[in-house]
């Protein structure tokens, strides 16, 4: 399969705090990677670095074989409509309604009419079971609902890659099932994804490959089967912790 995203020797630190020492992996077209690692190992920072929200110190990032880590902020804008990031906390615009939040990328990047935008927004919200919350403000929603609106907003432009930052954390079982279904639908459409999670059973259900971060490096990179059968003690702690 073709590589859609490649990360090579990525190094990232904040001030004198080293987060990533040497990260390399690639994402193939249509593949979904589960990214695991203890809290604070830099999973969110890694996703943010991929789309250039964080500047990396060293290393290279390629999208469709084209280097993107050296692009300017302006040059990154079109890339970010193709690699979409669903924030860990939703990061909704809290002065705008749910509808306005999900419609925002459509108004910005498409020439659709208001009617068409409305249809698309409702369609996206339907997928995350929130089609009845159009006129609510983010502050009227629970944390889990905000997250799902964030997911709807991230997918409304039909990106090629979706970076999901713990989309199932804090959700009840039926909504976890909803999100799993969403990701399955994307996979069926051939959309690639990186799925950050602490939820091992869900990761095993929907991911093709598992990556585990440990103190700034990739401690494990293999298929779900290899993950389950691994004898590595570090990997075992994840398997037993589920």
């Amino acid at each position: 399969m073709k590589k859609i995203l490649e990360i090579k020797n990525l190094v990232k630190s904040f001030k004198d705090k080293e987060i990533h020492k040497d990260i390399s992996f690639d994402l193939k077209a249509g593949e979904t990677i589960g990214l695991l690692g203890p809290s604070g190992t830099g999973k969110s920072v890694l996703l943010r670095s991929i789309i250039g929200l964080e500047e990396i110190d060293q290393g290279e990032i390629y999208f469709h074989g084209k280097r993107i880590d050296l692009l300017t902020e302006e040059e990154l804008y079109p890339i970010r409509t193709k690699i979409s990031y669903a924030f860990q906390n939703g990061a909704l615009f809290d002065s705008d309604t749910v509808f306005e939040n999900v419609a925002y990328p459509l108004f910005e990047h498409t020439k659709l009419s208001e009617k068409e935008i409305e249809l698309k927004v409702v369609e996206s919200l339907k997928i995350v079971n929130l089609e009845n919350s159009l006129e609510l403000m983010p502050s009227d929603l629970s944390g889990g609902m905000q997250k799902r609106v964030g997911l709807a907003r991230a997918m409304v432009l039909d990106p090629e890659i979706l970076l999901y930052d713990e989309p199932t954390a804090g959700l009840d079982p039926s909504n976890i099932e909803t999100v799993v279904e969403v990701i399955r639908k994307f996979k069926a459409k051939g959309i690639s994804g990186i799925f950050v999670t602490h939820d091992i059973p869900t990761a095993k259900k929907i991911c093709d490959r598992i990556l585990i971060l440990k103190s700034g490096k990739i401690a494990f990179n293999g298929s779900v089967e290899e993950f389950e059968n691994s004898t590595d003690t570090y990997v075992q702690t994840f398997l037993s912790g589920q």
Binding site: R48, I51, L53, E73, E74, Y77, P78, I79, R80, T81, S84, Y85, F87, N89, A91, L92, F93, D94, Y104, P105, E108, H109, R153
Partner: peptide
Amino acid sequence: AMNVTQQIDAIRALGTN
């Protein structure tokens, strides 16, 4: 307030300036 709640990041992540 938008900055500390990552809404500025969201504007950037959605491909806008």
